[in-house]
Design a binder for these strands. Structure first.
Lengths: 353, 353
DNA sequence: CGACGTTATGCAAACGTGTGAGAAAATCCC
DNA sequence: GGGATTTTCTCACACGTTTGCATAACGTCG
């Protein structure tokens, strides 16, 4: 075998090989299985030889190959993380939490963008399967329902963060949308607002449905009438929000406050209002959802509902760890949302223009 | 062997195993090496059997194990990406570009946060080595010089993005800092500013040095005097920038414009100026660097220098692909910076208060 | 009909690690 | 001192794939 290696080194390029278990077995003058055990601190090996072997291993910078180990143990100690786009500030913070937890437990994160593109999604799933990941976290504000079944086909634990499609059988970490938007809307009501608009996401997404329902419950709780014309829809991004805001401003009696599905939407709203010469919050109040980093730097700083994104990532990963160790953690973990009051919300004008 | 498997399935848990090459070999009634070749479209296999095998493989949802393949080919088709924090909007976009390129070429991204923490950095390097990644990209605005040598020890191609430590032997993708800040400063000069401050990063980082040098060259080019008191330092984040701004405002003759090391710094500056009742750009102009997403949403929208982050990630990855295929791409790729003029820069007041 | 190419397939050795079974050595007990 | 027991180590197989080499099948030609 040694000879083989030599020959290879001569005939082909002198391809570099990391030092293997055999190399140190030779140096330590024991069989390589003894080395394997010694490095795992197996009780089968005497302290003396174990220490000798460990010393040699340390000195020659030996690190066991995770791929060889993965082959025999059938555990790769990797987890796949699917995101729509890692450039999205929401998901990148969730991933930050996931990665930290992974690192602490000896797992590595394999990252894959889906771009909400079905083709890409298929490739991602394939890649995860071929890599034999031990678990999967899906973090995407708008995940295609399409590939959840594909993912589940590979018989691997899956945890979803802010799952948009209710009724799935999978495990998930979710923000308390209803409570959060209830508080946000109540905040506006307490300030004295009576005509509060809701600028939502596209229909069908669970988070939109839930945030809308919190809004409605707040209105009901204050015995305020629900005015359908005050509910408009965007797509969770700023551009569409601008158009939606303008439609609200065209109403005979425009709202005195706008509660937005998320901060990106609120950004568009702020911009549209500014373009119309309206001053926030004097003329009109705006409240967002997410508490993105940017929310405290807008003009004025945005009142919004905080999602503890990093923590959500952490929780998702902890849940996945439990699943992978065969336990059965609670199906749906929910995380409380926290209202953050800044300067974009204030009492309405006494006499509406 | 078959028998062995059975026994295992009986004695231990009926552990799920993905279908392997042997399973389809049995179904197709050929040896498993024939299957391997057939799936690689090897010319050694007749069309007829190849097609038969491929059909069976497709039907049974077979996907070759990347870990087994990696063991024999000594290529894992994975690349490690180190970032200080994936939650940083700068790096997350770079990673977005890297990931796309990876995906297109059949590579997977293993992500690791270093948090600029030496301990963590060590662990990251170890993990990458154990995983036998084929290449590494380091994307971090402030990478610890510490572990570059560690990384290079593992004999794997490395590409750095916006490397902060000049004189390394490695390959890198860099923004044209000098040109960018030259243009930014010239822009302010052309608007009529004479007292332009530079609010830099900590000393020693290459990008700070370069951006400062662009600033100086612009001054020199316009025959403006260099005033040392107009140069102050932060740490690339907003908080420190606030303090630095206040020190500038305390000067007997404060600047009429501030050129900032990056957008996060500029955010702090905007906030500090606002706190002092100064209006941007009427009272004072502010220019940033990076063109983060947030830059167009500040008040007023920020004039800044754009770094094509996504593209830089892509270029880094392409460079790495070349390196891995044995080619020797250009050592240092530089990318042009682009001045984006928004509303935070304007001519100075005629008569300085 | 046999030698000889061709072509298609199978065999077996790797890759680097984990691990059960068993051999060898050391220790203990009576 | 001999057998039982414990300790320490080695053997050999397995994980799922790639791949060089041997070989079987088959047709062709002399």
């Amino acid at each position: 075998m040694l000879f083989c290696k030599r020959v290879q080194n001569i005939t082909t390029d002198p391809v570099y090989r990391p030092t293997s278990i055999k190399d140190i077995a030779r140096k330590a003058n024991v069989s390589f299985s003894t080395v394997s055990r010694a490095l795992q601190n197996s009780p089968l090996i005497s302290r003396r030889t174990a220490e000798k072997i460990q010393k040699i291993a340390r000195e020659s910078g030996y690190r066991a190959s995770a791929v060889a180990r993965g082959l025999v143990t059938q555990k790769t100690k990797t987890i796949g993380v699917v995101v729509t786009s890692i450039a999205d500030p929401f998901v990148s913070e969730v991933v930050d939490g996931i990665e930290e937890c992974c690192n602490d437990h000896g797992y590595s994160v394999i990252l894959a963008n889906s771009n909400a593109d079905p083709d890409r999604e298929r490739k991602v799933v394939q890649a995860f399967y071929e890599r034999r990941v031990d678990g999967i976290v899906v973090t995407s504000s708008r995940v295609g329902a399409l590939y959840i079944p594909l993912l589940s086909e590979m018989r691997v634990p899956i945890v979803l963060v802010n799952n948009q499609h209710p009724g799935e059988f999978v495990h998930s970490v979710m923000i308390e949308n209803v409570q959060g938007s209830l508080e946000a809307t109540n905040h506006l009501i307490q300030l004295g607002h009576r005509r509060i608009a809701y600028l939502g996401d596209r229909f069908g997404h669970q988070s939109d449905t839930e945030r809308f329902s919190g809004y409605r419950r707040a209105l009901d709780g204050a015995a305020l009438p629900f005015v359908p014309e005050l509910v408009v829809h965007g797509d969770g991004k700023s551009e569409k929000a601008i158009a939606a805001t303008e439609s609200l401003l065209r109403l005979k009696e425009p709202p005195t406050a706008i509660f937005c599905y998320n901060d990106m939407t609120a950004l568009g709203v702020l911009r549209a209002l500014q373009a119309h010469g309206l001053v926030v919050p004097t003329d009109i109040s705006v409240v967002g959802f997410d508490d993105l980093f940017i929310a405290s730097y807008t003009n004025p700083p945005l009142t919004t509902v905080r999602q503890p994104r990093r923590r959500m990532g952490l929780l998702a990963m902890e849940s996945l760890l439990h699943l992978m160790s065969g336990q059965n953690p609670s199906q749906a973990i929910t995380v409380a949302a926290e209202l953050v009051i800044r300067e974009s919300s204030a009492p309405p004008r006494k006499s509406p223009k």
